[in-house]
């Protein structure tokens, strides 16, 4: 079981709710993924289009909600967004994300650390979305973050684990769960993250943008489970030279010359 801030999760696959063509597809995909933690965003109500009917069906599914601070450009805005989420959803859990640059959505490490400290001091359960920076991760852990969410590659890019080398260092050093977030584009990449020892992965675009999201959600579920089992079983060493898996006794040579 994965435990974050005292809350236990059977599934190590977290999912986002964005980018689905239809809310029914989103809900069915979450069911197929068996994810128990799903992310949400917040925005001003548009009275012309009305409210999204997203909240009630998610609550009926029984999943834990993880609101994010997307749209915040600095620590002050992110802290405000977290307090808004607390008021709206009655949860202290917050995915802290501060990315002022709309092109690459790179998280701002300085503002994130500032906001993380303030929110942890206010009693929030903070899961910061950050670059795969091992030094920053240690500092975020020091200020009390409940988990770390380093990116594999830019949000929604489906580029996979471009930061693999640094994710390994983060995983090795962390004393809180590491959730690889952003950029995971295929089940094999989620599996790889889990094989490396990540505690969980968060997937959104790869499922939502598939031609068959429900099937893709199930594929990710299986990949995450497989990767976790492989990590626990222990991967073999990677070597430069070949190491024979069959006995090299040369018996064929004997047989040929003897004939």
């Amino acid at each position: 079981m994965l435990t974050i801030s005292g809350h236990q999760f059977s599934s190590r696959l977290f999912t986002g709710t964005g980018k689905f063509n239809h809310s029914t597809t989103m809900l069915n995909s979450i069911k197929e993924s068996q994810s128990e933690l799903v992310t949400l965003a917040m925005k001003r109500v548009d009275f012309n289009t009305g409210l999204d009917d997203i909240l009630a069906p998610l609550q009926q599914l029984g999943v834990k909600l993880l609101p994010n601070t997307a749209g915040a450009r600095n620590a002050k805005e992110a802290i405000f967004a977290a307090e808004l989420a607390h008021e709206m959803l009655a949860t202290k859990w917050i995915k802290l994300e501060i990315h002022p640059d709309p092109k690459y959505l790179m998280p701002d490490p300085i503002e994130t650390l500032t906001a993380a400290k303030a929110l942890c001091d206010k009693g929030f359960i903070v899961l910061p979305y950050i670059h795969a920076d091992p030094v920053l991760c240690r500092k975020l852990e020091d200020v009390g973050c409940a988990a770390l969410m380093p990116l594999g590659s830019p949000i929604g890019s489906n580029q996979g684990l471009a930061t693999e080398t640094f994710l390994k260092i983060i995983i090795e050093q962390a004393n809180v769960p590491v959730v690889v977030d952003a950029g995971i584009g295929a089940p094999s990449q989620a599996c790889r993250a889990m094989e490396m020892g990540a505690d969980a992965v968060l997937v959104n675009t790869a499922i939502a943008s598939s031609a068959k999201p429900e099937i893709m959600a199930k594929c990710f579920k299986q990949a995450v489970e497989s990767g976790r089992q492989a990590y626990l079983a222990g991967l073999g060493d990677v070597t430069t030279n070949a190491n024979n898996t069959s006995p090299l006794t040369g018996f064929l040579n004997t047989s040929i010359t003897g004939g």
């Binding site: 986002g16 709710t17 964005g18 980018k19 689905f20 809310s23 989103m26 992310t39 949400l40 965003a41 917040m42 925005k43 001003r44 109500v45 409210l51 999204d52 997203i54 909240l55 909600l65 609101p67 994010n68 997307a70 808004l84 709206m88 959803l89 949000i155 929604g156 968060l202 959104n204 675009t205």
Partner: peptide, 10 residues
């Protein structure tokens, strides 16, 4: 006065 609601997001 501002009304905020939850929406889909990652």
């Amino acid at each position: 006065i501002e009304f905020f609601s939850a929406v889909a997001g990652g």
